[in-house]
Amino acid sequence: MKSNSIIGIYKDENVLLEAIDELLANNIRIYDVFSPFPLHGIFEKLKLKTRIPYATFIYGVIGTISVFAFLYWTSVVNYPLKFGGKPLNTLSFIIIMFVLTIFVATLFTFLTYFTIEKMWPGKEAKLPVPRTTSDEFAILIEKKPDMDKNELDKITRLLEKTGATEIKESEVDY
């Protein structure tokens, strides 16, 4: 997405969380928030949700079933061979199924994460405020073409009022 935006920079996470409340109360849509570490308050306030756990569960189920299918097919169907007097379809499959389910689910969760985050090795990060990976917090509000001057002023004033140490405009593209 490419658009202009107004950015308010904060130095304190508590001030930031209160600022988010204030902005939301004034019906301003917050496009994104940048922080050097995860803040659970933000997830709740912006009502962010993720469906990764469901994906992991599905990978796990697929993993269990396919590993069992493979073990059953090799040991019972394709080349039935008795080992140590144990039945062909044996309980020791559970151990392999348990471990390989974790293998499949872990690997695919990892890949899913990078896919939905659109991250890859060597991807260039375009951060509006580079210090947000170290010690600053930033609220990003999208500047829509249909916003008039009054609205923009209101946003700037609110950011100032809520304790932003710096307000700037920038073009973001990520």
């Binding site: 994104d32 997830f43 990078f114 890859w120 951060l127």
Partner: peptide
């Protein structure tokens, strides 16, 4: 930069990161 996979540290990114 290459090792960081283009990490941004935005709200949604952190949520997915923590969940993962």
């Amino acid at each position: 930069g290459a090792l960081s996979f283009g990490w941004l540290g935005n709200a949604r990114g952190w949520l997915r990161f923590e969940t993962t």
